[in-house]
């Protein structure tokens, strides 16, 4: 199915004199995971808040499941569920009570609430903590409960605003598994993140946002072509090794740090590279394999923009 469920056109929003969103446009396909990737202050949360009807855009149109978020907010609200950056859970109630309360506010009937509550507690591994006050939960448990609550009413579109920020690596992996599980059930997931790795792991489509605009959009693979792959960084203690190594391999060089960065495209290439060094008796001081980061994307993208400006000028 190639149906568009979220459609955003030329969205603009300014707070006082600061332009937070500056002509944002994108589409999200039904049943897909869409990641809005960007740094703090890029406009991610503002976008989520406009789409989830909490605030209104100054200009532009945002449609969800065919309804306008501005003029048909109540229709949109029936289709979506929002998990914001701050856990939307009641600290003084237990996990079970939180689910029951939200079930009632979602106007589900009693049996359905009981059934869904038990299911969701099970899925999100909260059954043991169900009768404990949320106050005593860890960050990861809170997040899980938060997402469980947002699934109660079986929404069509789920917004997850930085779902793993502040979680430890183990809880983050677990959260990823749960998000994948949701996507398999056919829900459309719109998530924001500042981690390239997270978007890569989860999303069918990634849009990179900077200064309120989408600067690049595509699948993880497509983005990687722009950003480059993983690189092997070799650092040398002495200049002779550094110069000798340059004879055998090509890559970006950093004279001052005596560092060579070589893009890695396969395990085989990596093995051959290291073999070469060994055979030639060149001993690097340090070997690091570096993942591309969001910084790299921004550096690349801003370089692109500059080039375009030059070309256009």
């Amino acid at each position: 199915m190639n149906e568009t469920v979220i459609s955003v056109r030329n969205l603009k929003k300014a707070y006082r004199n600061q332009q937070v969103l500056d002509g944002l446009s994108f589409d999200v396909r039904r049943g897909s995971i869409f990641a809005l990737l960007g740094e703090n202050g890029a406009g991610k949360t503002t976008t989520v808040r406009i789409l989830s009807t909490l605030i209104q855009a100054d200009d532009g149109v945002a449609m969800i499941a065919g309804y306008d978020t501005k003029t048909e907010a109540n229709h949109v609200r029936r289709k979506i569920s929002l998990t914001g950056q701050y856990a939307a859970v009641d600290e003084l109630l237990t996990g079970e009570e939180n689910l029951a309360m939200m079930g009632r506010l979602n106007h589900l009937d009693k049996e359905l609430i009981a059934k869904r509550t038990a299911e969701l507690l099970e899925t999100f591994e909260l059954t043991k903590a169900a009768r404990k006050k949320v106050k005593t939960y860890s960050g990861g448990m809170r997040r899980r409960l938060d997402i469980a609550i947002s699934l109660l009413a079986a929404p069509e579109v789920i917004f997850l605003d930085e779902p793993t920020t502040g979680l430890d690596p183990r809880s983050r992996r677990k959260m990823w598994d749960m998000i994948k599980l949701l996507a398999n059930q056919g829900v459309t997931i719109f998530l924001t993140t500042q981690y390239l790795e997270e978007a890569d792991q989860l999303a069918d489509k990634i849009a990179i946002i900077a200064e309120g605009k989408i600067i690049k959009e595509g699948t993880a693979e497509e983005l990687k072509e722009v950003i480059g792959e993983e690189t092997l960084e070799l650092t040398f203690a002495d200049t002779s090794g550094y110069h000798e190594a340059q004879n055998y391999m090509s890559g970006e060089v950093d004279e001052e740090a005596r560092k060579i960065s070589i893009p890695i495209r396969s395990v085989r290439q990596l093995r051959e590279l290291l073999n070469d060094l060994y055979v030639k008796g060149i001993e690097p001081d340090a070997i690091v394999i570096r993942q591309p980061t969001l910084d790299d994307v921004f550096i690349k993208m801003t370089e692109h923009n500059k080039v375009e400006v030059l070309v256009n000028g």
Partner: peptide
């Protein structure tokens, strides 16, 4: 100030 009312506001209530 927490997230709870934010979620409420995104519901048809």
């Amino acid at each position: 100030s927490g997230g709870l009312f934010e979620r409420f506001r995104s519901m048809p209530l």
